[in-house]
Nucleic acid binder design. Sequence first.
DNA 1: TATTGACTTGTGATAACATAACACATATCT
DNA 2: AGATATGTGTTATGTTATCACAAGTCAATA
Lengths: 176, 176
Amino acid sequence: MSDAVSDTEPHAAFSQHDHAHCVATTLQQAERVATERGLRLTPVRRRVLEILLERHSAMGAYDVLERLAEEGFGHQPPVAYRALDFLVANGLAHRIRRINAFIACDHPGEAHHAAFLVCETCNGVAEIPADGLRAMLEAGARSTGFAIGRATIEAAGQCPECRARAEQGTDNEAQE
Amino acid sequence: MSDAVSDTEPHAAFSQHDHAHCVATTLQQAERVATERGLRLTPVRRRVLEILLERHSAMGAYDVLERLAEEGFGHQPPVAYRALDFLVANGLAHRIRRINAFIACDHPGEAHHAAFLVCETCNGVAEIPADGLRAMLEAGARSTGFAIGRATIEAAGQCPECRARAEQGTDNEAQE
DNA sequence: TATTGACTTGTGATAACATAACACATATCT
DNA sequence: AGATATGTGTTATGTTATCACAAGTCAATA
């Protein structure tokens, strides 16, 4: 049975790691980007980014809103949506359409195309590089004369951890 | 400025074509598939497929529902969603997440992965083959240990027709 | 510092998309 | 016909997203 998979490098989203460090680093990068481009990383916007960074799963706009409200920001949907849209527009966060949710970008500032792996069991989301995918997609579109602006590439499935758990469960069903 | 693109074969969704024929063919294929697999292509389901086939743009569930209601079917959202979900589950239609809409499958029955080109101007949607994209996506996921179930690949941009119109508009602005 | 203009935040209201739960009908199989 | 599974329709509600407008903030500058 073995672990045909566990010998590969697991993605940060799907493994133990020094999360405090990972948050700090990404936040720092984001701040650098904002400064460089003259973006206004206001309190709400910054706080939303921090909230997203707390975890590697995506959050719905209303979940973010709830947090904001608790902390004294506005209580209405546009408060959350505006901040999220700002982050997405400036590459500091991504929108995951399959689950109507948002996630902080892994490496803001670096021009890149990303694809997302969405675990259907734990709702974790991993960002993987998609420059190659994007190129291939453009090649496909070219033959139709279509000009691509933005692309959404998302895969739903099971992350390594949940897959392992599922196998355990299979080995030993009748419990509970 | 040439036409680096206009000498390629345009996609059916983005060009003139014998649509009646294109509908009939696809519907026939769909029926064959349903028979082969023992699916029950009931009146509502079949009608929804026909409605989707009328155009090469995607329709929202509520647009479909409105049509159904006019024709004597149920008036409540589940009526449309259930039929649409059935069609999607059986590969007779696809869901376009970027615009919360549904579109008939171009070639039901043939096992395939598809990507979609969504025109932001006219809302037309073209389905293009994505087996290569899928393979590349899986390769990318493999290194994280992630097991892909379904994938969503969508590009937003401008179709050749709308692009042409836009250029005309640019040549000759000031008109209304 | 007062003014201006662009941008940001907050609000109430509402639109758009989607599902839950249940009753009844219809199909299939025996 | 009776039993079972599946499909349809309904009411009700949940979830996601946007509109329109008022008020506040900020930076540039006269």
